[in-house]
Computed example of a mutant assay.
Amino acid sequence: MEPFKNLINAGTVQRAGQHLQRVWPAFDRQGFEHRATHGLDTLEFKARAMQLAEALQATLPTDFGDAASLLEASLAPPIPLDAQGEPAGLSAAQSELGLSGWVVWSMGEFVARQGMGDVARALQCLHALTQRFSAEFAIRPFIQQHPETSLATIRTWVDDPSAHVRRLVSEGSRPRLPWGLRLQALVADPAPTLPLLLALQDDPSAYVRRSVANHLNDIAKDHPDLVAQWVREHLPAASPQRSALLRHASRSLVKQGHAPTLTAWGLEHGLKGDAVLTLTATEARVGGDIGLALRLRSRSRQPQTLVIDYVVHHVRANGSTSPKVFKGWKTELDAHGEHTLSKRHSLRPVTTRTLYPGPHRIEIQVNGKVCAGADFELLP
């Protein structure tokens, strides 16, 4: 499998040089490409993007307005969207017309580094860049250092005809965006972004709505009761699209068993009945998987709506355990009915979690309440 970092490569640099020289014949293409490709193969993904940004700093005009105009002129047409408002990808013909894709990450970084003295012009440039990749990383230093100006500007973007721009309103202002600068002021007080999320939660684009859900999920990490209240207010009479957004926004709180959120979803009651979890083996190996079979039996005279997650208590390097909640099932259990659910859980290591051999426990959590469990030994 091709390493992810190779999405930024020598060809990326050459295309950038080609299109920048196309719009500015005096551009030092040779110097740019030499700086951008120096030792490129030895660098990891983000370091490659930052080196390309540094090459832009060294070779674009020192006047930021002139540099921003050149960047905008070098761009391809906006990335098209499908019927659901999702990015449809780039065709070969579009890539020949200008720059788009991962190289725009570096262009946004250039704007963040060089445009702080002219915030209005910088945000205008990011408005263009985000339609060819995303400016979610680049806009964050502006929100941090110039919050009033930046938020006032993006407030005008909630009605922008481009779904890319509307998504940037939500994604760029997320308090805890992965890979992005943490916006500590918004972590402490998310109130400035709530009107933006309200304006976008019924956006016609699924691309935008998913960002709103992730933004609310970010807020839930520090202000869980606020998000529970949001669900209570906006779930009644919600469209299927809004209901899906609210469910995604409150996913972490449901997994945590946050009582106000469970109540907002009508999940305040645990299982009225019995649950038995059976594993397919008492031992499993790192790199393999293990099967879960859950048998439910109702003791209620009413149907029950159940959101079922499972918690794996992983062994840590020091011998202690750490719980990780995984998505399980959502099901309806008939009155006095029985239901069996099954799935396989992967034990392959991932970049965010190292698996250590030792005794592991899996617990079943129904509507936020643990009701069954089983143990297995993880072998090297």
Rank of each mutant, 00 (worst) to 15 (best):
D225F: 05
K330V: 12
P260Q: 08
L292P: 12
E233H: 12
A238W: 01
H360S: 08
G291S: 08
L262V: 09
S243A: 13
L279S: 13
R297H: 14
V312S: 02
V286A: 03
Y356C: 06
P224T: 13
L294M: 05
R247P: 00
H234Q: 09
V276F: 00
K324M: 04
G257L: 04
T351L: 02
I308L: 13
H360V: 11
V276L: 11
T280N: 14
H360M: 07
G273D: 13
P240I: 02
V325I: 15
L341A: 05
Y310N: 03
N217H: 07
Q302W: 13
G257I: 09
A249I: 13
G328A: 03
A335G: 03
E233T: 15
G266Q: 03
K343C: 11
V311W: 02
K324P: 08
A244E: 10
E283P: 03
T263A: 15
H336Y: 15
L245A: 08
K330H: 13
G266N: 04
K343D: 07
R251M: 12
A335N: 02
L216F: 10
T278L: 07
G270W: 10
T352L: 00
P236H: 04
S243M: 04
Q229S: 14
P260S: 08
A281K: 10
L271K: 05
V315Y: 02
R285Q: 13
R295G: 02
L279E: 14
E332V: 14
W265C: 04
G287P: 07
P303V: 08
R299W: 05
L292W: 03
D309L: 04
Q256D: 14
P240R: 00
Q302C: 07
L246G: 05
P260Y: 08
G287Y: 05
V254N: 00
R353K: 05
G266W: 02
R344H: 12
T263K: 12
R344Y: 02
R232E: 15
A244R: 13
K343R: 15
G319E: 03
S346R: 03
A275V: 11
P349D: 04
I219S: 00
H234N: 14
W329D: 13
D218F: 01
L235Q: 08
R301G: 14
H258L: 09
L262F: 06
Q229V: 06
Y310E: 05
G291V: 10
H258I: 12
L292F: 06
R242Q: 15
L246N: 04
I290S: 00
L279H: 12
V276A: 10
V286Y: 01
T305Q: 11
T280V: 01
D274K: 13
E233G: 05
E268F: 00
S250K: 03
V311I: 15
G328Y: 02
D309Y: 03
G288N: 09
R285Y: 07
Q241V: 07
G270Q: 11
H345C: 00
P236E: 07
A284M: 08
R297W: 02
D225E: 15
L279Y: 12
N318I: 07
P349C: 06
R301E: 15
L347K: 00
L216G: 09
G288K: 06
D218P: 06
G288I: 13
D289Q: 10
E268V: 06
L235R: 14
P224V: 14
R242G: 13
A317Q: 13
G266C: 05
H313D: 15
S322W: 08
K330L: 01
G287T: 10
S298C: 11
